[in-house]
Amino acid sequence: MTVAQATTISGHALGHYLLLSAVLFVIGVVGFTTRRNMIVMFLCTELIFQAAAIAMIAFGRFHADVSGQVFVIFILTVAAAEAALALGLVVLLYRRKETLNAEAWSELGET
């Protein structure tokens, strides 16, 4: 589809996308704060990224600007880098305590 054939979406439709993005974001936050498996917690951060990506694309579409998509490329980059590093860390942590429970790592607490 060429740009010239593009149609714009209305502000009303944009609201739908943004609401969906917000819902995904909140589900990601709730997942991050309730799940205790470290890997699933990282998956939830990916969900948050997803929500941001949808909002970006929707805005880019609304403004007929490709910057939104460019930003999503960077989000993908960061997500990939984060996945590589975070998963490496998770593997290390798992080797230490033989568990994926994030609560096993609470030595920094004050109580």
């Binding site: 991050f32 704060t33 994030a102 609560e103 609470s106 607490g109 004050e110 109580t111």
Partner: peptide, 17 residues
């Protein structure tokens, strides 16, 4: 506020959110 600093990631995450 001490109970918030229990070293458990989720508590910090909830505080932040």
């Amino acid at each position: 506020f001490q109970p918030l600093h229990n070293g458990i990631l989720h508590s910090y995450a909830i505080s932040m959110a």
